[in-house]
C-alpha cells in the first residue's frame, strides 16, 4: 500500500514537472502613463528593482513601453499615475500582457 502510494505520487510529480517547466512570462513594473481603453493599450514608464524606503516601487528608468491588454486579466483598472505590475509575453514584437496588477491601489501589505 505504502509503496503503491509512493509510486503514484512520483509518477504524478514527474508529469507535472514536465508540464510545468514550459511556462514563464516576463514581469515589469512602473508608473502608468496612459490607459487607452478603446485600443486596449497601456503605456508605462518602467521602474527598476532598486527598492528603497523613498522608492518602494523601484526607481524610474525613463524607458517607456506599451502593452496590449486585450486578453489580460485586470484587477483594479489602472489610471495615469498608478504603479502597476504586468506579466507579459512578447508576440510578434508586441508585448501582450497576461495579468495586470494595480500595485499602488491594492497595497496588500497593509491588510
Amino acid at each position: 500500500m505504502k509503496r503503491r502510494i509512493i509510486q503514484i505520487v512520483m509518477v504524478l510529480a514527474g508529469l507535472f514537472w514536465l508540464a510545468g517547466t514550459a511556462a514563464a512570462a516576463e514581469v515589469s513594473q512602473g508608473k502608468c502613463l496612459q490607459y487607452d481603453k478603446e485600443r486596449k493599450l497601456v503605456t508605462i514608464e518602467e521602474y527598476d528593482i532598486n527598492f528603497t524606503n523613498e522608492h518602494p516601487y523601484g526607481q524610474p528608468t525613463g524607458t517607456q513601453s506599451e502593452y496590449n491588454v486585450a486578453t489580460a486579466l485586470i484587477g483594479i483598472p489602472p489610471e495615469a499615475g498608478d504603479i502597476i505590475r504586468l506579466a507579459y509575453n512578447v508576440k510578434d514584437g508586441t508585448k501582450v500582457a497576461i495579468r495586470l496588477m494595480n500595485v499602488s491601489k491594492q497595497d496588500l501589505r497593509k491588510k
Partner: peptide
Amino acid sequence: NIVVVADTRRVTGILKYFSDLYNT
C-alpha cells in the same frame, strides 16, 4: 477583483519557478 502579479524579477530558483507558473 483583486489580481496579483508575482514579481519574478526579485526571486530566483524554486521561488521563481512557482511565481512564473502562477503568473502564466
